[in-house]
Structures are given as C-alpha cells and as structure tokens.
Computed example of a mutant assay.
Amino acid sequence: MLISAPTLFISSVTPRAEEFAIEEQSRGFILKMRLSLVVAALLCFTTWMSVVHATHGPVPLCCMQWSNTRIPLKRIVGYTIQSEGVCPIAAVMFQTKLGKRICSDPNSVWAKEAILKVDEEKEKENIARENEECMEE
C-alpha cells in the first residue's frame, strides 16, 4: 500500500491559495466600488451643475425698485430696458457717465425723455461714424 504524499501536500497548501485568491478578489471588488463611487459622484455633480445653470442661468442685474432720482439728462450715456419675466419689475436702467445705474419707471415722463435723448445721441454718433468712414474711402 502506498500513501500518496502529494495529496497531503496539496491539501495543506490549498487553504492559503484560497485565502490569497479571496484577498485578491476582495481588493478588486473594493477598487471597483471606489471607482464606481467616484464616477457616480462626478455624474451627480455634473447633472446638478447643468440643472442649476439651465434653470437659473447667470444672475441678471435687476432693478428691484424704481428710484425717484432725476439727474440731468446730459449725464446719461446709456440705458437697458428690463422686462418683468426675468426680473421682479419692469424698469429702465440708466447708466451715467460716472458708471452709476439708476432704475426708473419706464412709463414716467422723465424716463421717456431720457430714452429719447440717449437714442438721439447714439444716432448722431452713428451718422458721424458713417461720414468718417465714407471720407476715408
């Protein structure tokens, strides 16, 4: 009768090999889980940023109320008409030579005069620019 020694030898090594294989599988599983977690976090962040930007967009510069300040029309260099859709009130935002902004009721007489004055000056500037371009040619 022969007792097979290799069988005894293999059986004593097998538990360690199995432990090593299980350890390697666990490491692989943990790495996959970490990668999945990072990808999920990036996906959530990207989705959140796109939703926030799409819904709110850049914050507009809005007039929250009208000012009763009436400055000389010669100090006004530009204006922006503000609608109620994006901002809380309809208004005209006037820009002064010093860079200040004044919000006014678009239906007020003063605001209408200021708008006309700015439009007339812009038109004069455009005509002068066109004349200069014609003279250069």
Rank of each mutant, 00 (worst) to 15 (best):
E121Q: 14
K122Q: 13
I127M: 14
W110F: 15
F29W: 04
L35F: 03
M93T: 06
P6W: 02
K97F: 10
G78Y: 08
Q25R: 11
T55H: 03
A21S: 09
D119F: 08
H53V: 00
P6N: 03
K117E: 15
A111D: 13
T47Y: 00
E18T: 03
V38D: 01
P72T: 11
L98P: 00
R101V: 15
G85M: 07
E136M: 08
G99R: 09
E24L: 08
R101M: 14
S12V: 01
T7F: 10
E130H: 13
S83G: 14
R129W: 07
C44S: 06
E18A: 08
C87K: 12
M1C: 02
L37C: 04
W66I: 06
T46N: 02
A17D: 03
M64Y: 05
S67I: 03
V52G: 00
E133D: 15
V13C: 06
R34K: 06
F45L: 01
M93F: 02
P88M: 11
T7H: 09
C87N: 10
L116P: 02
E19I: 04
A40M: 01
A114G: 13
C62G: 09
G78D: 13
T55W: 09
T55I: 03
I89T: 13
Y79F: 15
M135T: 08
A91E: 06
V13Q: 07
E84K: 10
K97N: 14
K32D: 04
R16N: 06
A41S: 09
D105M: 10
K32Q: 05
C62M: 04
N68H: 10
T69C: 02
S83E: 15
V109S: 12
L35A: 03
V59F: 03
T96P: 10
N107I: 06
K117I: 09
P60Q: 01
A111T: 15
E125A: 13
K74I: 03
C62H: 05
F94N: 08
H56Q: 03
Y79M: 07
M49V: 09
R34W: 01
N131H: 12
M64I: 06
S104Y: 09
Y79P: 04
R75D: 15
G99Y: 12
E113R: 12
E133C: 08
I89L: 10
T80Y: 12
C103E: 13
I22P: 00
F94D: 10
R34Y: 03
N107R: 15
F9E: 09
F9N: 01
C87A: 10
E19L: 05
L31F: 04
K97G: 05
Q65D: 10
I71A: 02
G57I: 00
G99T: 12
A17V: 11
K112W: 05
V38T: 02
K122C: 04
N126V: 12
I127E: 15
V118Q: 11
P88A: 13
R16P: 00
W110A: 14
S108I: 09
E133N: 15
I71T: 07
D105N: 15
A114N: 13
E113H: 14
E125V: 04
C62Q: 05
V59I: 07
T55F: 05
L61D: 14
F20H: 03
I10W: 10
E23G: 08
F20W: 07
C103W: 09
E113T: 11
E130S: 14
